[in-house]
Design a protein around this nucleic acid. Sequence first.
DNA 1: ACCACAACCTGGCCGC
DNA 2: TGCGGCCAGGTTGTGG
Length: 290
Amino acid sequence: MPELPEVETIVNQLRPHLRGRQIAAVWVGWERIVDRPPVAEFCRRLVGQTFVAAERRGKFLLFPLHRGDTLLVHLRMTGHLRLLPSAVRPDRHTHVVLTLDDGQCLHYRDPRKFGRLYLVGDAQEVVGGLGPEPLAADFDVAALAAQLAGRRGRIKSLLLDQRFLAGLGNIYADEALFRAAIHPLRLGQSLTAEEITRLHAAVRAVLSEAIAAQGSTLRDYRSASGQSGRFQEQWQVFRRQGEACPRCGTALERMRVNGRSTHFCPSCQREDGGSADHRLLSPDCQVVSL
DNA sequence: ACCACAACCTGGCCGC
DNA sequence: TGCGGCCAGGTTGTGG
């Protein structure tokens, strides 16, 4: 479910509630949700620890604990974290419950059971292989260009590769490529300097705007406080195949890339890279009237 | 390096 | 209502 903006929203909402809270008890109902260490050790090591922070790296939530361990959560497709009163019983899709010292419980709920929890002494053991943080101050155009140099893979696949760039998923990859007017099948190393500049701006703009809207909601996604995001109202191409392109009116299309649905405008995003529309785009991806 | 595909799981939706 | 097929915001492993 969640990509970078949704995870950022959840972390920001959990932080004030978790900081300083001690874990009184741990319940695990589906052992495979705990990636490491073995479940018995996971529970034993967690009890008695206190949350000192709540952070995000890519799509991971990181919860540093006072004894030096870090609890990490990856929500994959359908994971949720909710703070609920301790009287609320876990439902059939709730697989882990952390009982806190203030009468609240942190529920990990995940119908598809794809998500994973990790408890490690060094968070780098889990997130060390991730690519750059797209919203970090030092992720500039040159950094993106360096990532793209020599890459022969399709740009859509690269954007989804968490070692290439951390945090983008299917929604924001498609939205960023549309804003930058780049065809999803273009090869990484084939992008011009102008296109890299546009892509850099597009990635950061779409993520920032999505965070401001508290993410996108599909089906029953809710943030930690139970609110839904609003960014799905601003999708320009995602799941809009057949509708008119908001920039040129051409019917939007859908294709498969890397086994993932990919949405794009065949007129604005030309595979040969030679779209006349380039002249209509400023570097910050806004349409410029001639 | 890169690609295609299966696997991990369950639920929702559509057509028959 | 039921059933089959397809779809899904992600990642990992295998084999080519």
